[in-house]
Amino acid sequence: MTTPPYRGSLLRWLFPHRHIEPEDSPKTSPIFDEPWRNISWGDTASSLQYVQNFQPENKDISHLRILLYGPIGAGKSSFINSVSNVMRRRMTCPALASSSVQSGHSFTKQFQTHKIRRGQGNPRTFCPFVFNDIMGLEEGEGEGVRAEDLNLALKGHVKEGYKFNPVSSLSNDDPYYNSAPSLDDRVHVLVCVLSAAYAEVKESILQKMANTREAASNLGIPQIGIITNIDQACEETEKDLKNVYKSKHLKMKMKDFSTAVGLPLNCIFPVKNYSEEIELNDNVDALILSTLRQMIDFGDDFTDMN
């Protein structure tokens, strides 16, 4: 394996806590005077309506398929639950998530498709987009989801319920192999998820992420990045979530993310997943909806051209 070109790009990721200035250095503000990216904090209703009203331009598909991948503990399942919370307007748990990664292994073992309910009314209807949650990326060979399985999932060859095997890939004679995937079965948006609170991101995991990005790029699949746990990584954002695009620390994290995985900065979005809350929060919703709108727009453009 060649040494990734981004080896030095995540040095700051190795030290996730706030930078401590020497005692004799002049104090600088941890936040910018103005946000470097604009977001409509007080207008979640219009963003929610946009998502609620979304219908794919391509009438040959019933939904957009969004695949989330990343290291274990990045918050993939929690993001799916957070989207469900926003759309249902209450706390939900469609994707089982773990609050601990102490075992060092992925909590998600199977290829799962999660449909998102619309609102709370009847009859029961679902949004025209679904999420696929997969086994997390782990360090070393024979650990975590295999690159071959990820590539098969991108093309729609993996059936619901397939149990990932870290040491053996899905074969074309397996009953969980979809030999004739439809456009509905294919992935329409690939989402890389990293946590801002990670102590470090191993080079072997970054290499696996780079390989997956290359496979998706060869298929023309649009890609975005999500950086989670922003409140845990930045004191100013923990105090006020509206500081997310003022935080110098988080902007630095996002730039490092961009360099490490090769995604443009305007395709990377910080979010706070619902974790300790028992009621909805408008500011949490605003970041999730802002990210979700980009996902469905990117996916809709992709399916409209295929």
Rank of each mutant, 00 (worst) to 15 (best):
F126Y: 14
Y198E: 11
H157L: 02
N218D: 12
L152P: 00
Y176Q: 12
I226V: 12
V193M: 09
Y176V: 01
I296K: 01
Y177R: 02
S179L: 09
P4R: 12
H63G: 00
N165H: 14
H19A: 12
S217A: 14
G225P: 10
G299C: 08
S290P: 00
R18E: 15
I268D: 00
T92S: 13
G121C: 05
R146G: 03
G119Y: 01
A74V: 03
G121Y: 05
I39V: 15
L68R: 04
T228L: 03
K251N: 10
K246S: 06
A197M: 05
P222V: 00
C93F: 06
A233H: 06
E235C: 01
K255F: 02
F54M: 05
M295H: 06
I227A: 09
I39M: 13
S84H: 07
I230C: 10
N85H: 08
S247Q: 06
L289A: 09
I20S: 14
K208Y: 04
T291V: 06
Y69R: 09
K246G: 00
S204W: 00
F54W: 06
L287W: 07
L219S: 11
S99H: 05
F32W: 15
E279T: 14
F54C: 04
T125Y: 02
I227F: 04
K239Y: 07
E279P: 00
L206F: 07
L137A: 04
W13S: 06
A197C: 08
G70L: 10
L263E: 06
L152M: 12
S46I: 13
G156T: 05
Y176S: 14
H19C: 09
V201D: 09
H105P: 00
V101A: 10
G73F: 04
N122K: 14
S195M: 05
F32R: 15
F257W: 03
F257K: 03
S77W: 07
I221C: 07
C93W: 01
V271W: 02
Q52H: 12
S9V: 08
D300S: 10
R65Q: 10
L190S: 13
V193L: 10
Q294S: 10
M135E: 11
L67G: 01
T44K: 13
D240I: 04
S258C: 07
D285N: 15
S195V: 06
R88G: 02
Y176G: 03
S9F: 11
W13C: 07
M209L: 11
